[in-house]
């Protein structure tokens, strides 16, 4: 896929960094012209540093992180688990497979007010939002993988009179794992979105809560700083997801290059 052409890597990184620096300078200049609407990077950084010093930012990060992790873990357990069940049961797949697709198209944001009304704004309700956001890509990818276990390998297992558990250990799980991992990669991104849905619309806690209250105060320095922070975290999470996806399929690495 990648047609590497002529861009050499170190030069590319240098240009990227120059682009970032340019953006920062532009931001600083613009911020100095209109300090009310657009805080300068320096002031945004100071705002973040202040929140680190008084402990609000670490506490919020912890809150957000916990919600994200618990919701994601539930989605992985549910998605991979039910995915594997679906892959082995024709009956369940035939009857509930299409429901998965139907439910997947319901936007979770829109459900937030209903979840709030029915289940309140406790940790459980917020976790539910994160879970619902992340579970579908994981589930769907897992089923896709398990359903397309290569026929020859199933024959190999049968010729060697493999039992059911060795069949899972040697064929189904290793084959499905990379599919599940790419589901989990998408799930990580979706869980992050879900975390903000929960913090914005159920209960203003964590980073989402800090963003909302700063926005209500028109504190553009804090909002801008937090927004940049969120985007950095999101990019890191995406990188992590890609790493994970690769790490779990070492036998594929050669073929993807």
């Amino acid at each position: 896929m990648k047609h590497s052409g002529s861009d050499s890597r170190p030069r590319g990184v240098a240009v990227s960094l120059a682009g970032l620096a340019l953006g920062l300078i532009a931001w600083q200049v613009a911020g100095q012209r209109d300090p009310v609407l657009l805080a300068t990077p320096v002031r945004s950084f100071e705002a973040l540093a202040g929140m680190v010093a008084d402990g609000t930012l670490p506490a919020a990060l912890l809150d957000t992180g916990l919600l994200f992790l618990v919701g994601l873990a539930a989605a992985i357990a549910g998605g991979v688990g039910y995915g594997l069940v679906l892959s082995r049961s024709r009956v369940l797949r035939g009857s509930t497979g299409w429901l998965v697709f139907a439910l997947q198209s319901v936007p979770i944001v829109a459900l937030a007010p209903l979840i709030l009304a029915a289940f309140g704004f406790g940790f459980g309700a917020k976790t539910l939002v994160v879970f619902l956001s992340a579970v579908f890509p994981i589930l769907i990818n897992t089923v896709e993988g398990a359903r397309h276990a290569p026929k020859t390998l199933l024959e190999v297992a049968k010729v060697h009179r493999s039992g059911e558990w060795p069949l899972w250990r040697d064929v189904l799980i290793p084959h499905t794992l990379p599919y599940a991992m790419s589901g989990i990669r998408q799930g990580i991104a979706m869980a992050f979105v879900g975390t903000f849905i929960a913090e914005f619309f159920l209960q203003a806690t964590g980073i989402g809560g800090l963003l909302l209250s700063a926005s209500a105060r028109f504190d553009s320095a804090t909002v801008l700083g937090l927004t940049v922070l969120v985007s950095v975290i999101a990019a890191l999470l995406m990188g992590l997801g890609r790493r994970l996806e690769k790490a779990f399929a070492p036998w594929r690495q050669g073929s993807t290059e």
């Binding site: 992050f192 849905i197 927004t227 999101a234």
Partner: peptide
């Protein structure tokens, strides 16, 4: 090529980010 390298940090930073998180900033602006 150079345009891609120049914009990569912005595009990938924004692309990964939940657009929700941009709403508080947008309401201020």
């Amino acid at each position: 090529g150079w345009l891609r390298q120049l914009s990569t940090p912005y595009i990938s930073g924004l692309y990964a980010m939940p657009m929700l998180a941009i709403v508080p900033m947008a309401t201020i602006w």
